[in-house]
Amino acid sequence: MQAAEKKVFERPRTLKEVPFHFCPGCHHGIAHRMVAEAIDKFQLRERTIGVASVGCSVFLYDYFDVDVIEAPHGRAAAVATGVKRARNDRIVFSYQGDGDLASIGIAETIHTANRGENITIIFINNTVYGMTGGQLAPTTLLGQKTSTSPYGRDFMQDGYPIRMTEILATLEGTAFAARVAFTTPKNINMAKKAIEKAFQFQKEELGFTFVEVLSACPTNWGLSPVDSMKRVENEMIPYFPLGIFKERKAADVL
């Protein structure tokens, strides 16, 4: 009989003990867990207000044990702005997909960053509209076939996949902008640190914080979860490079 066996990995307190509705191998669940862990790490649960967006991410409130408001499609950054302006001592985050944030909501996203709103956005880039059945997204890779780009994305027809982290990193209001993925143990650790840093920066009121998560959508990609992970590594990362694109120092805002 072993004496002091310790639990070294468990479900974070902020994440409710309910099964996710996500498809097998979908990375939403990993991102959810990391956000919940960041909230727990800084003991923010009781003063956090989440903003749910439209898409597979809408059921945020079923999983996170925090107050949540549901935003219209694309408007989560504006809603988060309103919440933060009304309650500036609360921690406010939105969690949005690529259709929501980079297409219909790009104006709200850019202006929220540019105003330096002290909120955190977790951005899930999986190169398709997931919930509506895998249509072309602004992030769909060139040549990628989707249900509305059956011949593959052609830049003459649909333009190029948009790199949101790079765009937002150019804005003065952005305090932290990073792109992460879950493809390797190293990348998983980097993702966890980036999400923690985003919340830490918000806590320290340094400005707008943004983490883009390259994510798999096995169902709409028509790949197994394991092959989907390989696609993130081999096809997405070369176009959407990982890393921290902006990291403001506390002294910069004084």
């Binding site: 990995f9 939403h28 990993i30 998983i188």
Partner: peptide
Amino acid sequence: KGCALCAKICPDVAIEVWK
């Protein structure tokens, strides 16, 4: 060895690790 990589990659937070 309790490295917890399985738990960290699990999209359904279905794994707990004891050491």
